[in-house]
């Protein structure tokens, strides 16, 4: 099997890939994130766990500016997300500049969000052609290679409705990888899948981690977090309750809230 390594853009320095400083997020009156501080290092697999409504998905969506943060600072690869700073003033980035920032950040959604009017191959080819202005031949060649890599080379001509949930999610991963991102965000990638299909998606993610991709994974798959994760954060009610190596946090939680959550999901 060919490696995915050549599709990974190496990070520009040893500095953190993602750095959050006191990140807050409110929707109207509801305060979702209440001061998140964390660092994700290059080549790290960073797992976010916590009860639903704890703000982990919202935080993930802030990283590629699908949500605007209300306070604090959020950096990806040393660059402020969504804003430009001159002196002590922040300027909103234009739509095109935000789009340019997102190019380097792949995202995989809980509900796959494949484009239903395009075949698997066209889904993977779309962004490189539209965003990077790649030639069709180049895009097709890489798309086919990525589909082969996620084990769906023979499904290239299928529409999403003709694929199982696990297959759709693997196409979605290939689609994100086609932009050669330096960071991948996974928003509960296996939560919408039948139990027997979860494994095939986790296998692809495990391979990706082994190839050195920086990954932030919001998940309920504690087994995956323990085996593949380098860091783990337990969030509750908009704050980081506990963090550390997955093995330590999952087997020896210090905080009562973590203990009671883990006792329910493990």
């Amino acid at each position: 099997m060919s490696s995915l390594a050549k599709d990974i853009t190496p990070p520009s320095s040893g500095a953190p890939m993602v750095k959050a400083e006191g990140v807050h997020k409110s929707f109207g009156l509801s305060h979702i994130l209440k001061g998140i501080d964390l660092e994700v290092l290059p080549r790290e697999v960073f797992c976010l766990i916590g009860p639903s409504g704890s703000g982990k998905s919202t935080f993930l969506r802030c990283i590629n500016h699908l949500e605007k943060i209300s306070a604090g600072r959020l950096y990806v690869d040393g660059h402020l997300v969504g804003y430009r700073q001159h002196g002590d003033k922040l300027y909103e980035l234009k739509e095109k500049e935000v789009a340019a920032q997102r190019r380097d950040i792949g995202m995989v959604f809980q509900r796959f969000n494949l484009f239903p009017h395009m075949t698997a191959l066209e889904n993977v080819m779309e962004a490189p052609i539209q965003v990077k202005r790649e030639s069709r031949a180049t895009a097709r060649e890489r798309a086919q290679r990525l589909l082969d890599r996620v084990g769906l080379g023979d499904r290239a001509g299928h529409y999403p409705s003709q694929l199982s949930g696990g297959q759709q999610q693997r196409v979605a991963i290939a689609r994100a990888l086609a932009m050669q991102p330096k960071l991948m965000l996974f928003d509960e990638p296996t939560s919408a899948l039948d139990p027997e299909l979860v494994g095939e998606v986790l296998d692809v993610m495990r391979d990706l981690a082994e190839d050195g991709m920086t990954m932030i994974v919001v998940t309920h798959e504690m087994g995956f977090a323990r085996e593949v994760g380098d860091s783990l954060v337990f969030m509750d009610d908009g704050v980081v309750v506990e963090s550390g190596h997955p093995r330590d946090v999952l087997t020896n939680p210090q905080h009562d809230r973590t203990k009671s959550f883990l006792s329910k999901v493990l």
């Binding site: 789009a99 190019r103 969000n113 484009f115 539209q130 979605a172 932009m179």
Partner: peptide
């Protein structure tokens, strides 16, 4: 059209215009 389509398209770095036209 499901909002997830817009999000997926934006997450790939496509602009509003490209999203509208292609997705």
């Amino acid at each position: 059209v499901d909002e997830g389509q817009t999000e997926a398209s934006h997450a790939l770095g496509m602009t509003q215009g490209q999203t509208l036209r292609r997705v």
